[in-house]
Design a protein around this nucleic acid. Structure first.
Lengths: 109, 109
DNA sequence: CTTATAGTACTAATTAATTCGTATGTCAAG
DNA sequence: CTTGACATACGAATTAATTAGTACTATAAG
């Protein structure tokens, strides 16, 4: 998914070659993965020339939002607050970013 | 895991009965799950009377911290800031909780 | 027309996770 | 001593996810 997002659209070959850099994998494996992502509704495909070109079916923001929500549901029974607390209190986050968040919160007041 | 945390310690039977409330499941299934959690280092067991009593092997905070980090790595390539931004901007979080976070941030300044 | 190439479709093998059954042991009640 | 309740150990069946192979098609080069 990330790879398709980065490129906004990508063929199986594009993704295949990008993945090859990191690990050994078969071309058809990538094909299968992308087909599954398609049937699950994360990618759309469109024939272009000989090959399929895949693009995201939904805006990235939306998908990530859904992932966050699922994570929250699973780990914190759906409430965001404890997650925030962890993030702020733990050493997950750099001081510089904290400052950014402070400002954001001020604005949205 | 959640169930053991809630109880601080639990037998297979405890967990089994708690799960039964939600879905049909076999006693031995729960046993296997807990044994796996043990070999993976999430639970410790200790014989008590006839049965094993399981307790968390690590403090809950620590485990959850690890899960958050893994999630961040996977989804945001390891940086916390975009996750924060999502949480604050999206409708994941109630106004009341936002206020709490604001206060926390002020204090930790 | 033949062949090499790049692609898909379909199927199959592999691996990992989940769920459960059977055999067996222990203890307390009768 | 026998039986029933309750436990574990071990192995196996099931299901889901991941990875890959083979057959077939279209196209462009020669």
């Amino acid at each position: 998914m990330k790879l398709v997002w980065q490129r906004d659209s990508a063929t199986v070959r594009d993704v295949y070659e990008a993945l090859l850099g990191r690990r050994k994998i078969a071309y058809t494996t990538v094909m299968t993965m992308m087909k599954i992502l398609e049937t699950k509704g994360y990618l759309k495909k469109r024939r272009q020339e000989r090959a399929f070109v895949y693009r995201p079916a939904h805006p990235k923001e939306k998908v990530i939002g859904k992932m966050i929500r699922e994570f929250m549901d699973r780990v914190f029974n759906g409430s965001a607050e404890p997650l925030l607390v962890h993030l702020v209190r733990g050493k997950h986050i750099r001081e510089r970013d904290l400052e950014k968040v402070r400002r954001m919160l001020e604005e949205s007041k």
